[in-house]
Design a protein around this nucleic acid. Structure first.
Lengths: 342, 342
DNA sequence: TTGTATGCGTTATCAG
DNA sequence: CTGATAACGCATACAA
């Protein structure tokens, strides 16, 4: 298998007996090039199967139209939708997308960020790992004048663009809805409070209770009920209380809510009449459980697009004084049968 | 906002009053470099916050440790799992992953492939778009000596590495299972027959019928029942036949199977007693419908890993005479309630 | 409009 | 072991 050298602009310059720079100009559609020679170059380039070497071009131009993305897990509905949304707009702009996953590990996140810095990407888009750690690596990104956009799980202190959901509002809306449906002992399944989004969701829950004059009951708030299993476990505990809740808001995820539903079904507890259930994320399956699960849609695909738009807008405005902006996307409560009493 | 020049090996060479080439050697951990100077270089490099410019390095070395991936849709369980699996092993090897989605469009797929060729990636991993078209772009990849690995939906004629599921076997197993459960009029929801995987699944269906001495009934085979909606539509038709089927194998996807289930439920048809249902892909939701849906697991994450392994194995063996290999992964039938009569 | 020369940041080759 | 120099492929400032 012979390693066949790829044709360069020199090859085609030689063949045409013109200078390489002319070929370069013709290829880049420069205005200062004869239409005839341009056509000729384009034609022979096609014949010779020429494909530009992006590494050389980008090196020379000193910029790389590539965006690096770091997410905790690629194969999670929310994140894969974000990536799909990003790709949608970066494709239009002719940008490439380099994807890394941190697997929720800090050390790995740092690695990924360094790799992206090496690649001289124009922008890094990141949702930080659950595992805590320093933010040096992110500061390094900023120090090198690489755009940094945080989304969903963000480090507040860092002065960067941020695209987030209004978790507090969404959470507030969900609990108010439960209250309006006549539920009065509403339990909360919370996520790790080191992560801002989970703190915000709890805040929304507390505010809704307060607003409605309901007491905050410690024993109705369960920490770290993140997964389906943990959700189920927490539910078992909650339902065995002397005064069990009549609704459970699984603020962590729909998977957690699913755990709730399964335990309730197993115990023969009627949902939504005896127990209301609300999840978070609008995973596809929430629509098809029985009963279907009320949840919160985060518009993940649009969010991905919004993130990319933010980058390109700022790039094109070239307003160097632009303040780092925070875009808040309002999630929407999707009311389904698991909370609809009639 | 001042554009702060990034430190290069020259900067650190100057500071240390040594040659840039020595810095390069020290950084790349070359054997022919004094331990003392190496340590010194490493130290100052860290101090000066040096990060290598991968574009320059790769250009010079003439290779780019990056793998390009083209999938129809990033945010589809199967594909995002594949990508996660790929990332798992490419990360270990220090490779980057550039992701593109064709959106099932041929023209866009061609675009993506060209972009990847420009990037001088070492390998392109692709699952082709549903929309038919020429395979010139793939041939171009091969012409440039870039490794090409096809997976799942592959172009048979092209002499490349392939990682596929044994769709025929899986399909055969599923139908045999239905027959063993006592179903005797088994309908098939098929996908576009231009795509090999759907042809193979149909083949498995036909073989199972033949093997068991059942007749092939044309009116029980529905074309293009790909989505949930189309699956539902096909089911409505099937169930209104004079002699309706007593089982439906949605070979296209679990979404299609879900459509079947919804129609059956709406019509009050008992699943699995009056109607057996089997899907394809083992989407997460199949576990939680009622009844849960029998389906086929494709081990997508392991498949992603297998694909990457294939590349690196071939790379490391550097056996230039290696025949393009085909790796077939055996999917597994997951038997659930929708086909379990007792 | 076209050609010449130079540099982007590295690494590899050659002397020393 | 180290330093000077060329080259990777392209784009641009400048000269013609």
């Amino acid at each position: 298998m012979k390693r066949q050298k790829r044709t360069t602009i020199y090859d085609i310059a030689q063949k045409l007996n013109i200078a390489a720079s002319s070929v370069s100009r013709a290829l880049s559609d420069s205005s200062k090039v004869n239409a005839a020679t341009k056509a000729l170059v384009l034609k022979t380039a096609a014949e010779m199967n020429y494909q530009q070497n992006a590494m050389a071009s980008n090196l020379r131009k000193g910029n790389n139209p590539t965006i690096g993305v770091v997410v905790p897990r690629i194969n999670q509905n929310f994140f894969s939708n974000i990536i799909a949304g990003l790709e949608e707009v970066t494709y239009e702009k002719g940008y490439n997308l380099i994807i890394c996953q941190s697997n929720e590990l800090h050390a790995r996140e740092v690695d990924c960020v360094h790799a992206l810095i090496n690649q001289h990407v124009s922008c890094i888009i990141i949702s930080i790992a659950a595992e805590a750690g320093s933010h040096q690596h992110l500061q390094q990104v900023l120090d090198r004048n690489i755009r940094l956009i945080q989304f969903d799980r963000v480090v507040d202190e860092l002065d960067t663009f941020k695209v987030i959901n209004d978790n507090e509002k969404a959470s507030y809306d969900a609990v108010m809805h439960l209250i309006n449906q006549g539920y009065s002992r509403i339990a909360l399944l919370e996520g790790p409070q080191e992560i801002d989004i989970f703190r915000q969701r709890k805040e929304g829950y507390l505010k809704a209770l307060q607003k409605s004059g309901f007491p905050v009951i410690e024993e109705l708030m369960c920490e770290n009920a993140w997964t389906k299993e943990l959700g189920a476990q927490a539910t078992t505990q909650l339902l065995s209380l002397p005064e069990p809740p009549d609704a459970i808001f699984a603020s962590t995820s729909d998977f957690s809510a699913l755990g709730v539903l399964e335990v309730a079904s197993a115990k023969g507890i009627a949902v939504p009449d005896a127990l209301g259930i609300c999840g978070y994320s609008n995973e596809p399956f929430t629509e098809i459980t029985s009963p279907s699960i009320t949840t919160i849609d985060q518009f993940s695909i649009s969010m991905g697009k919004a993130i990319a738009d933010l980058y390109f807008q700022e790039l094109e405005s070239s307003d160097l004084n632009a303040e780092p902006r925070v875009v808040s996307i309002k999630p929407e409560l999707i009311i389904r049968k698991s909370t609809t009493r009639n």
